[in-house]
Design a binder for these strands. Structure first.
Length: 563
RNA sequence: UGGGGGAUGGUCUAAAGGCAAGACAGCGGACUCUGACUCCGCUUAUCGGGGUUCGAAUCCCUGUCCCCCAGCCA
């Protein structure tokens, strides 16, 4: 990955703050962090955060820590930890030595809690969750103070230690900060710092039965790691006063600055870990890495390149207003990358047999084809040609309009890199379905050009029937039928699932070289789109391709408009 | 009826008191052995109302609309 300093891009508001902090001498370096909770797979929204945090660190020769925010053991697992590490690496980022877990700080965090109690700034509260909720107040009315708020330091210390020892049942007591029950910000109305959970943790096992809450853990973890800028999404703006309160109250040696930015939203999909998990667990998709999911692993399996995702994250920018990015922007990012890098091949997805009646039976020859039209260095390959071919069913039309630049009875087209052919006869079955075409070819046009200078308007792709391996091709469409599936108050987002988001084609025919393609190899099937061998299921005996994205198709636009 | 944020073409992002710019989408055209790519052109925006100023997207006042906050989730 390279940074291009040639074009001076305006800095986003976060980079401006960081540049100012460096310029003023407030900081000598920049240390950021990406802090996922290991309770699910990363999605495209996380990619934005990853690119931001790791990108900023790289630009400033600082570092970016990968820290797992693993304070809620019921939800979390080490499978998620491994998946997340894999995804961050795949995206092209490296945390070096800076791999951390909030659970590494449990002992220190406990010590900070004790300090807070000693300072009279925290207390053990016996209220139940329901009671606490009732006493929290409303936006306009202050909450009521807990009857346990004025316990002595000694009693709090004793109780907190008992909580740690496991003397209480789950939910029986919590540790609360003593701030202000009348604050207009609910988060300052004596928030819970620790709760009792008799649950094993994926890293600390059963050594703890009290677990710190996010607001207590996150700021202190940032502080312990010397994070300079703690970047998070907008919904944490209300948490910032609490973030600052904890660090100020404990007079910590450093005080990272929390800055909030707008999370990424993309239309026709959901970017919420909770909802993605629901799709997986309820079987609406095949797994976290289903190619229709905008998880990092789904995008990888779909065939997206890391560079295209990074580029996408750069294009969309970083700001503070809530925004919805059009799915087309993501698709365009991968097209742009693949257009320059993906080798071109011929593959027929919906085969229609063509017999070249004037081509000798039992013979074949090889024709040279370029691997990339704009890149001569990509080289060439040889394609077998013979009397029986397959073309795309949609490239033939019996009653074709004038603007249909493809095959029709009596019309001449070019077979890419091969010959001009003219359709002479249409063979149909009893139902009237076209099952075969008879065509004649012009031997003079070998390679694709006519010596007499005559032109054809259309060029279509083809494969030689005897030489083309059969393949499975999976076509993907958007997962949801509506633009904002999760913003409907009445209807569940799953009711907008697109029943046609996956279409499996079993009878595709591809050019011979594709059988030996490796796992996750990407190609452009000419005139159709970009495809990728499936990282799990592709085999030489049974090639499996996933469609990454279609090519732009202005003919589809024209023909759709006429309808 | 509290507090915290936000409003620039259809969408996203710039412009830091001085020509409202770029990308995506859309439309039209050129080119073409991919109806791809590429190239050219075009349509479309500062939430409303006041004010300050030679000059306001930007500063001030005011109104409107949208998002977030009452988990022992993060």
């Amino acid at each position: 990955m390279t940074t291009e300093p040639s074009i001076v891009k305006p800095l986003d508001f976060i980079r401006q703050i960081i540049a100012a902090d460096l310029a003023s001498g407030k900081h000598q370096t920049t240390i950021t962090r990406f802090p996922p909770e290991p309770n699910g797979f990363l999605h495209i929204g996380h990619a934005k955060s990853i690119c931001l945090n790791f990108g900023i660190a790289r630009e400033n020769q600082g570092s970016c820590h990968l820290r797992f925010d693993d304070t809620n053991p019921g939800q979390e697992s080490s499978e998620y930890v491994e998946a997340i590490k894999k995804d961050v690496h795949w995206l092209g980022f490296d945390w070096g030595e800076q791999l951390h877990y909030a659970s590494d700080y449990f002992e220190q965090l406990y010590g900070f809690a004790v300090q807070l109690i000693e300072a009279g700034k925290a207390y053990v509260c016996d209220l139940s969750g329901e009671e606490m909720r009732q006493q929290r107040g409303t936006p306009t009315e202050p909450g009521t103070k807990s009857p346990y708020r004025e316990r002595s330091v000694a009693e709090n210390l004793e109780l907190f230690e008992q909580m740690r020892k496991g003397d209480f049942a789950e939910g029986e007591r919590v540790l609360r900060a003593k701030i202000d029950m009348a604050s207009p910000n609910f988060l300052l109305r004596d928030p819970v710092l620790y709760r009792i959970m008799h649950t094993s943790h994926h890293r600390t096992g059963d050594s703890w039965c009290i677990y710190p809450m996010y607001d207590f853990t996150h700021c202190l973890s940032d502080m312990l790691e010397g994070i300079t800028h703690s970047l998070c999404t907008l919904e944490f703006e209300n948490n910032r006063p609490l973030y600052d309160w904890v660090l100020d109250t404990l007079s910590t040696p450093c005080h990272p600055r929390q800055i909030e930015f707008a999370r990424l939203n993309i239309n026709y999909t959901v970017t919420s870990k909770r909802k993605l998990r629901q799709l997986v667990e309820e079987g609406h998709v095949l797994g976290w890495d289903d190619p229709r999911m905008l998880t990092i692993s789904g995008l990888r399996r779909r065939g997206y390149t890391p560079a295209s995702i990074r580029n996408f994250c750069e294009i969309i920018g970083v700001g503070k207003r809530e925004s919805w990015i059009d799915m087309g922007v993501l698709e365009n990012a991968v097209r742009e990358d693949l257009n320059t890098h993906a080798p071109r091949v011929l593959a027929v997805l919906d085969p229609l047999k063509v017999v070249i009646t004037n081509y000798p039976e039992g013979e074949s020859e090889e024709l040279e084809a370029r691997n990339h039209p704009q890149d001569p260095e990509a080289g060439t390959r040889m394609l077998p040609f013979s009397r029986e071919l397959y073309i795309e069913r949609s490239d033939f039309m019996e009653d074709a309009p004038k603007k249909f630049f493809r095959l029709s009875l009596g019309r001449e087209v070019r077979l890419r890199y091969a010959y001009f052919i003219t359709c002479t006869e249409v063979i149909k079955d009893e139902e009237g379905e076209v099952i075969e075409l008879h065509c004649s070819y012009d031997p003079e046009t070998r390679g694709g050009n006519a010596p007499d200078g005559r032109k054809v308007k259309g060029t279509i792709h083809w494969v030689s029937a005897a030489h083309a391996p059969q393949a499975e091709v999976r076509l993907y469409d958007r997962l949801f039928t509506t633009e904002f599936p999760d913003s409907d108050k009445e209807q569940d987002f799953k009711s907008f699932l697109n029943p046609e988001s996956l279409q499996v084609l079993n009878n595709c025919r591809v050019e011979p070289g594709l059988a030996t393609a490796g796992a996750s190899d990407r190609f452009q099937f000419e005139r159709q789109g970009y495809f990728c061998t499936d990282e799990q299921e592709h085999r030489a005996e049974r090639p499996v391709f996933n469609r990454i994205v279609t090519l732009r198709d202005s003919w589809a636009k024209v023909s759709a408009k006429k309808k």
